[in-house]
Design a protein around this nucleic acid. Sequence first.
DNA 1: TCTGGGGTCCTAGGACCC
DNA 2: TCTGGGGTCCTAGGACCC
Length: 421
Amino acid sequence: MAGFALVDCNNFYASCERVFDPRLEGRPIVVLSNNDGCVIARSNEAKALGIDMGTPYHHCRDRLRRHRVHVFSSNYQLYGDMSRRVMDTLRTLAPDVEVYSIDEAFLGLDRVAFAAPAELAIALRARVRQWTGIPVSIGIGPTKTLAKLANRHAKKHVEAGVFDVAGLADRNAWLDRFDVEDVWGISKAWGGRLRALDIRSAGQLARADPRLVRVHLSVVAERIARELAGIPCHGLAEVTPPRKTILASRSFGRPVTCKTELGQAVASFAARACRKLRAQGSRAAAVQVFLTTNRFRVEEPQYANAMTVGLAVPSSDTRIVTAHALAALAHLYRPAFRYQKAGIMLLDIVPAESGQGHLFLPTDQTVSDRLMATVDRLNARMGADTVFLAAEGVAKGWSMRAEHRSPRYTTQWTELLRVAA
DNA sequence: TCTGGGGTCCTAGGACCC
DNA sequence: TCTGGGGTCCTAGGACCC
């Protein structure tokens, strides 16, 4: 049984909030981006009210209030943990799972113990719902791109939430019902260029000459066309390769002008990035620091800049990375600007064990590695920010806004769900 | 007052080498 | 008037995704 299934959690963030507060069932919900900036998730009821994805919160706040929409700040500790539970549940019935995003997974169908893919899908859907409380939709097809499209169909048009392309009598006619922009990987911009070639529907793209698509767009688009035609160009990527870049950045809850506060923010980002770096068993050989004013405030003076510094020896030591990041910040900082965002990116990432030494510097990292491992263990066990560098500061007046965050029910001892008070 | 964060891949062009 | 050819590596920018 070849092919792929795409499992996609329905309105994932909104569904996570509902799991822990069933009163929200049937009520409109939106979830905001970091810093309570934009709407990034909506329940079906909120979609029906015409709340668009990506709308700035301050543009729709009054409408949300009028319609009694329940508003949540992003709660990534909760969503990340719920995601892990969903993925673990999928693995109980499907041995080959590629976690594609926080709310999506591709399954390989070669080794599953069901007569038909749709039977597996129905069983999975029921089990995920029962074990985690999260509703999912499942699309099945001979390529990832077709499974994606099948998922879209399942979510919109199938009560059971499962759809298999193989059951179609006329796949071309089915594909013709989708706009070309509905296809995974075809954005609005590419859709426009395809329309100029008179390719308007998914079906037309599937039937187009892939070489023509390559000439006018790119090899990436060519693969999409081939996949739509049923020719697999992408396999299942079960093991996630280590990240090649690691980014940690945030918008500030209010404009920041003070160099000390910027330094504390950058130190906090460095700590987060280094934790991710160590978690995947890597070291970084370069650090980039960037900062920017608020580009939406056109009446204010604007400044954005970035600087990359190399490390003598690849490191995952928060102290070393922070020191380099702060040195870069000192070069970048200009007084008299109102900064809105800063961040750091770790680059030139290498496996920790294959670290090349330094000709003249001592490179025994045992002490550093043990210290960092201890810090990570403490923070994992006792809660984030139990131990941190003083450079991060403690007041954190620049922290992002999160005025509507629900409790972190599953990851913080102090925020467990209260059944009776 | 208020507009997210975190990734990947591909391509073009310049630097540099023989 | 004439001024090689072919390759690799790096980087910036642009495209896409959730």
